[in-house]
Design a protein around this nucleic acid. Sequence first.
DNA 1: TCTGAAAGGCCATAGAT
DNA 2: ATCTATGGCCTTTCAGA
Lengths: 195, 195
Amino acid sequence: MHTIDEIDVEILSLLGEDARRPFSDIAETVGLSGPAVSDRVARLQDAGVINRFTIDVDRSTIQGGVPVFVQVEVVGADVDALRERIGDADAVEHVFVTAEGDVWFYARAEGRNVRRWLEELLENGDLEYRVTLMDDVEWRPSLGGTAFALTCAECGNTVDSEGESATIGGDAYHFCCSSCRDRFETRYARLEEGA
Amino acid sequence: MHTIDEIDVEILSLLGEDARRPFSDIAETVGLSGPAVSDRVARLQDAGVINRFTIDVDRSTIQGGVPVFVQVEVVGADVDALRERIGDADAVEHVFVTAEGDVWFYARAEGRNVRRWLEELLENGDLEYRVTLMDDVEWRPSLGGTAFALTCAECGNTVDSEGESATIGGDAYHFCCSSCRDRFETRYARLEEGA
DNA sequence: TCTGAAAGGCCATAGAT
DNA sequence: ATCTATGGCCTTTCAGA
C-alpha cells in the first residue's frame, strides 16, 4: 500500500521540467538523499504514475503529413479494440475516448490521400467519422508548480499531508481523509462484486 | 548550419521510448561513440527539435477534476491570445488549433462546477463552445520507427540521406534537395523584408 | 564531426537505523 | 522508508584526425 505525498509531487514536477536532471540535484531540492529519490521514482513507475521518461519533440519541423483530428462515432463495434488499433498506428499522436464511447484522435495522415488512409485505419468498418483539418498542437507535460496537486478520488478536494493514498485494483488513488478512502473502497468492492 | 540525418531520427526515437537511456547504449545501437551521441543530442536541443526531456504522467491518478474536451468556436476574437491563455491554465493538457482557427482543448476541469470554470477560463467572452465528457486519453510520444520521418519543408516529400537541413530564423527546417531549400530561403527572405 | 582515453560525477547496492 | 558509504557505470572533456 503505497503513499504519494508532496515530495513525490515535487519530484514529478522537477522531472517534468527536465527528466535527465540528476537525482542528486532533486534530492537536494526536496531535502532527501539520492537513493531515497531513486527509490521514490522507482515506486512512482511501478505504481503507473510515471508512464515513461520521454522527450517533447517539435514535430512540426520533423514529421510531415496532414494534421487531422478525427471523430469516430462508434456504433456496434468494440471500442477498446478500435482504440487500441488506432493507438498503434504510427501517425497517431493523441487518442481520446469520450464518455459515450466514441473514439477521437489526432494524427498526421501519411501520404496525400487522407480518405484512403483513414478507411484503411478504420478497417473499412461502416463507422461514421468526421475529419477536421488542424493547424497546431501543443502538449503540456508539467506546467507550473501547482499542476501536480493531489486531489481526493472521493470528494475532489485537495489532498494535503493529512491525506493518504492507496493502490486499489492496481491503480493508485489519493484521499483527503480516511473516511473518504473508506467510502471509496466500499463502493469499489461493491462494484467488483456486481461485475 | 546544422544537418539532421537518419541517425538523429533514430536517436530521437530511442529517447522518445526512454529519455533516461544511457547515451552509451544509444551509441552502440546507432553505431557511434558515446561523445558523438552526446554532441548530437546537444545540437538537437539547440536547434529546438528537442523541446525538453520530460515524463509522461498518468494524470488520472494524480490530478482530479472532470476530464472534458472543449471545442471553442472563435469568432471575432484573437485566436493566438486565446490559445495562449488556455494553454497556460493548469488544468489544460492538450491544445489544438483547427485550420479554421477554432481552439479545441482537453482539460481536467477543476472543482465541481465545470460551467463556471469554463466561463472564467474563456474570460466571459461571448464565444460559443461545446463540452464533451471524456473517458480516457492516451498520448504517444515516439511510436515505431517511421514516426520521425523527415519531410521537406518546401514540397512535403520525404527527406532521405540526399536531403539537407538548415536553421532559418532560429527554427530547423529540412529539405529533400537544394533547390527546395533555395526556394524556401528566397521566400523566407522576402517575407522578412516585407515585415 | 568523429574517436578514444581519462577525469569527474552519478546511480544503485548494501547494511544499519 | 531513509541514511551513509562504496563500487561501478555514465557523461563529459580534451587532444587528435
